[in-house]
């Protein structure tokens, strides 16, 4: 039995209420707002901007709801750095919620979504309205990411490819580094911590932590990609090699920054 049973029960209830709201809101947006947007705004770039802004403000409202209900608290550092265009934003992924935070804090955010979402009737509207990159084409994905960045989108990638293991940092995929070296574009790293841990991989939503969880979002200064290329371009160094070296550097960087953030 938790030490403060009422507080615990309240947070189970509030967490359930938050997720129900998120679900109902998502269905309403997915079945009404986004299809309307697809119908009414034909100019693709304008439609994408409006849809992304709608997602952004919905995520913001959801976070404020959870804060007011006492489910979570948060602190933000360096988020001004996200107020730019064409950023490649890389973050660790300790909880389900961090995608909602990054989606809220990043204007004109683009992300890669599973192609299976295009078979989900609630998701067809939002995915096509926002113009999110659909992960259907394997290597073609890198080219899609590069053109999103060139179009001014801020691309969010969790380079581990899935949620981080409890208290750690998972093996890195090389996709994010490949986008960086082929664009080429600098990286904007974000260090996320959640204390106590919750909503990790395989966790159940009603297993709420012993106290209100606290999310810390720290947007770090950009990491330059040029040192991993030959000067500013890839003359001589193959992209595969540059992506390997950059991935290794990212692994060291994230492990060091995470250790510092938890200290």
């Amino acid at each position: 039995m938790p030490a403060r049973p009422f507080n615990h029960l309240w947070r189970v209830f509030a967490t359930g209420l938050s997720f129900t709201t998120f679900g109902i809101g998502g269905v309403l947006l997915g079945l009404i707002a986004f299809p309307l947007l697809n119908l009414l705004v034909w100019q693709r770039q304008r439609r994408n901007r409006i849809a992304r802004s709608l997602v952004r403000h919905s995520f913001g409202a959801f976070i404020q709801l959870m804060r007011v209900l006492g489910v979570l608290s948060y602190e933000l550092h360096g988020v001004d750095r996200l107020q730019r265009e064409g950023l490649l934003v890389l973050a660790n992924h300790p909880t389900l919620i961090d995608v909602v935070f990054l989606g809220w804090l990043t204007p004109n955010a683009d992300c890669v979504v599973k192609s299976a979402l295009l078979r989900n009737p609630v998701m067809i509207g939002p995915v096509s309205a926002t113009g999110y990159i659909v992960n259907a084409s394997g290597p073609g994905l890198i080219a899609d990411c590069v053109s999103s960045l060139r179009g001014g989108g801020n691309l969010l990638i969790f380079p581990e490819g899935t949620r981080s293991p409890p208290g750690g940092f998972g093996a890195l995929q090389r996709g994010a580094a490949n986008v960086a070296v082929r664009a080429p574009v600098d990286l904007t790293p974000v260090i996320i911590t959640c204390n106590p841990p919750t909503l990790g991989k395989g966790g159940r939503w009603y297993r709420v932590p012993s106290r209100r969880f606290h999310i810390r979002i720290d947007v770090r200064p950009d990491l330059a990609v040029a040192p991993f290329l030959d000067g500013d371009s890839l003359d001589g160094t193959s992209p595969g090699m540059a992506a390997r070296r950059l991935t290794e550097h990212l692994r060291e960087y994230f492990e060091m920054e995470l250790a510092r953030a938890r200290a």
Partner: peptide, 8 residues
């Protein structure tokens, strides 16, 4: 070698 490398 991942799928991106395979293309290269």
């Amino acid at each position: 070698i991942d799928s991106i490398d395979a293309v290269d």
